[in-house]
Amino acid sequence: MLEIRNLRASIEDKEILKGIDLKVNAGEVHAIMGPNGSGKSTLANVLAGRPEYRVTGGEVLFEGKNLLTMFADERAREGLFLAFQYPVELPGVRSWQFMKSALDSVRRHRGLEELSIREFDKLYEEKLKLVSMDPDLMKRSVNEGFSGGEKKRSEVLQMLLLNPKLALLDETDSGLDIDALRTVSYGIDQFRSPLNAVILVTHYQRILNYVSPDYVHVLVDGRIVRSGGRELALELESKGYEWIKDSVGISN
């Protein structure tokens, strides 16, 4: 589904990603872990097409297509989704209109008809329940005045609505209390299928107790320094990131 080859990217002439290789197949869950500032969000945002980042080398194929030549909206319509580490507030933009418009454009691209208002409302309510969100919140402007936890739930809600092929979740678990973490994990679990894939970007292994990954990659200083199975996350948890830095010979 996704193939990243020797991807390099920089921002403001500072190289952040220094050659990333990663392959993700349908049905898989990959966890990307790493210390703060190692480039996890950069990777997620470069994949989603954030214009500030400059790709300086390598290539990315998504379902066989060159992802890097597409604009962010095209990538989304092709089936890529990024749950933001810091979801953006959109004052005055109504949640309902925003989500309907997003789903309409994704569906049009897939050759499907736009949903009627009634059909959309039904789907919307269904998904709201999955993430235990108060429907009243959705009468507000997008993310405006939402608590940290509500923002993260709203990201998962959008993922469930748009039903992408590949979901990149950037620290969707951080800052959540245990109940919210369960809800968010439940939402991700509902989303998983043999036809789609998930990349979980996280700082802590906590969420991996709920959403079990097939692969774990450790990102340090813009490089994947180690890949392994579920057990790698546990090892990281007990030994800390210093251990991995030492073991691959990166000093602070």
Binding site: D73, P91, G92, S101, A102, S105
Partner: peptide
Amino acid sequence: FYMMSRGIDKETATLFLIQGFAR
């Protein structure tokens, strides 16, 4: 970028922002 990452084209996203600003 947030709106475009949901599949909304740039023109519509800009319109939403303007309408949101005016609301």
